[in-house]
Design a protein around this nucleic acid. Structure first.
Lengths: 204, 204
DNA sequence: GTCTATAGTTTGATAGAC
DNA sequence: GTCTATCAAACTATAGAC
């Protein structure tokens, strides 16, 4: 009994230490750039020396990997609780806004989730799993609103992701591409003949 | 006379040495990743030692900068000679295909042109100039086909760029997003009420 | 213009004391 | 689990001989 409680307490400590390290890693990545992350800098922020990090992560890439998993899990949690509007167009708008704002809120996070910025880093299957679940969830949500074609789903993701990436590349911190989001979604919805209002009026 | 000819010959040699170095730099970037570029490796490929590169470039970032300029100038040259179809939809398709294929043909080039991958690197005004010219040219081409709104132009770029980035991130070397290109362009053209054929038939 | 030599850092990672 | 010590390597960049 006592042994079990101790083990539990220890694993909780370990978990919280890992979280602290990752939080510091995010800070460093935001300040110096994702590729400029160094173990010394991360360690310093949590009051440690670089070698101590190896008690919690087996390598630098393991830190990137954990960050990757954290990013997608946090997006997954954000979408898990949310309810989508019943009307397909409104639902698409909400989904697009959610994804766009998440991508635009944090550059290194977006680079990690949606680009291949770090040479030699590939996410592990465990860290990739939440990303897969998010896409599956998106796919089923869109199926429910009548969008079943895989290509149409891919196009939606590319459309919203493209706006987010363009926002970062050409107008970081601005709203030049954010303003186009609803226009883009409507364009997409029109092309798929989604009903304008609640009624199910099909075009001929 | 003779001095002038000698100077000319020397500057030609210098220029070709720079080109060789940059060509090696592209090779290294493609093999090891853009951010993993090192002066030693680049120098070795041209049969030099790292310090010798400083006779041609003032710093590592100056090499990135020259690569950035080279990438956009090469795209500019590619588009300069090309003639666009008279029909707006066909022209849009051609422009999209051209941009997409260029982006998908070379990962580090695309990262350099359209993302902010290298911490601390910002293109110089001289290297940025061809990028500006390309966008201006695109804008005027689109104006000529009746697309004058800046937002509409931005949306087109983001749409095509988003497909290219998604291709790299989710299906590198494949055709999953390339297949969606025409569908995306048609969707865009429909939203802007571009004529289906040569005639100028407006929707009510 | 290229070299050697080297400065001066910085890096990721390991060994072993405590 | 954190530390010191340290490795071994890599890095960008400079100085100065040739």
């Amino acid at each position: 009994m006592l042994g079990g409680a101790t083990a539990d307490w220890q694993s909780k400590r370990r978990e919280s230490a890992r979280r602290e390290i990752l939080s510091a890693a995010w800070d460093v990545a935001r300040e110096n750039g994702l590729a400029a992350l160094t173990l010394r800098e991360v360690a310093a922020r949590v009051g440690m020396r670089a070698p101590s990090l190896y008690s919690h992560f087996s390598s630098k890439n393991a830190i990137y990997d954990a960050m990757f998993g954290q990013a997608w899990r946090s997006y997954e949690e954000m979408t898990a609780g949310a309810v989508l509007p019943a009307q397909p167009r409104a639902a698409l708008r909400a989904m697009a806004k959610r994804f766009f704002e998440f991508a635009v809120a944090d550059l290194p996070r977006n680079q990690l989730m949606n680009q291949r910025t770090i040479p030699g880093f590939t996410p592990s299957p465990e860290s990739y799993a939440p990303a897969v679940r998010v896409i599956e969830r998106l796919r089923s949500d869109m199926t429910r609103m009548g969008i079943a074609d895989d290509g149409d789903v891919d196009l939606f993701i590319a459309l919203v992701g493209g706006l987010a990436d363009a926002q970062w590349a050409n107008d970081p911190g601005g709203t030049r591409y954010a303003r186009l989001l609803d226009r883009a979604v409507d364009m997409y919805a029109d092309a798929l003949h989604l009903p304008q209002v609640d009624d199910d009026q099909e075009e001929t």
